[in-house]
């Protein structure tokens, strides 16, 4: 009987999917709704404190310009880091996918993945050692150049960008690599037989065909970078106040979870709005 078979199928599908649903509920939905709930409270409801429902936390964002300024600063940081990562990552992916073969490719891949496997704090502090005045970079540059330069990148926006690019570069390399791998070499040969030079092939063929991968990588980078707090704090020092660090402060330092939660949701909304606004453009680039 078709009905019972369909019923069995549905039951089986449900059983197979239930771990995934359970995981989604526990790991995503519950914490998110808890945060959404907090964001409408006047106080953290612990230690028998008085609390009531309010939208004051959301109002706070609009009442002072500070949060919006910081959010703007974070969005710009996200753009810069994404752009730098794409500019560095795409050529790396191209070399990996189309130039090197065999053993060399495996070795290079390992180098690309390595930041993923190292602890993020270790990674950031190693950059601190490299970038600070009289640090590794400073000494190396002075050893090479005949004149004296004072090179101290530590606690500057540049340091933050370097740290973030290093952390997130693998995303764009991996997604671009996959997209480039899918481009048949015969397409490139066909273009060459038609008289196209490397530049033309890059712009008319490779970039359009790899666009979905590049865009996926860019989105994967942009979203977390806008909310990042560790790199700005550790590598930016006094200058390292960003939207993400403010949110972190609410949770860790001043214990104002409701405000932190409200700021997080505003960030989420803004990022989603940006992606939605950009999606027609991105979709056109991706086809």
């Amino acid at each position: 009987m078709a009905g019972t078979i369909a019923g069995q199928d549905r039951r089986k599908a449900f059983m197979l999917l239930s771990p995934a649903y359970l995981w989604l509920t526990v790991a995503v939905f519950l914490p998110l709704s808890a945060m959404a709930y907090f964001s409408f409270l006047s106080e953290v409801p612990f230690d028998g404190r008085d609390w009531h429902f309010t939208i004051a936390n959301y109002r706070a964002f609009f009442e002072t310009g500070t949060y919006a300024t910081l959010l703007w600063k974070s969005l710009k940081l996200g753009l810069v880091v994404t752009a730098v990562s794409v500019v560095i990552g795409f050529p790396c992916a191209y070399v990996l996918a189309k130039v090197v073969k065999g053993r060399a490719r495996e070795a290079l891949f390992l180098l690309v993945i390595l930041p993923f496997w190292s602890n993020s704090l270790v990674r950031i502090f190693s950059w601190a050692i490299v970038l600070r005045g009289n640090g590794v970079l400073d000494r190396a540059v002075n050893a090479v150049l005949p004149w004296d330069v004072k090179l101290n990148l530590m606690f500057s926006p540049t340091a933050i960008v370097i740290g973030l690019v290093h952390s997130y570069l693998p995303y764009v390399i991996l997604t671009s690599y996959l997209a480039l791998q899918a481009i048949d070499d015969s397409l490139i040969e066909a273009a060459r037989s038609l008289g196209a030079k490397r530049r033309t092939i890059l712009w008319r063929l490779i970039l359009p065909l790899a666009a979905p991968g590049i865009i996926a990588g860019a989105v994967l980078i942009f979203v977390p970078v806008v909310g990042s707090f560790m790199e700005p704090r550790l590598l930016g020092g006094r200058l390292g106040t960003y939207y993400g660090t403010v949110i972190e402060d609410q949770f860790v330092a001043v214990f104002n979870w409701p405000l932190g939660a409200a700021l997080s949701f505003i960030l989420l909304a803004v990022v989603l709005a940006i992606l939605a606004a950009a999606s027609p453009v991105l979709k056109r680039a991706a086809t």
Binding site: E189, A191, P208
Partner: peptide, 20 residues
Amino acid sequence: VPVEHREIGMVFQNYALFPN
């Protein structure tokens, strides 16, 4: 003379049409 200057026309076994 590199391929792009040889003024050849080529048809590949898989046709290699540009999908974009």
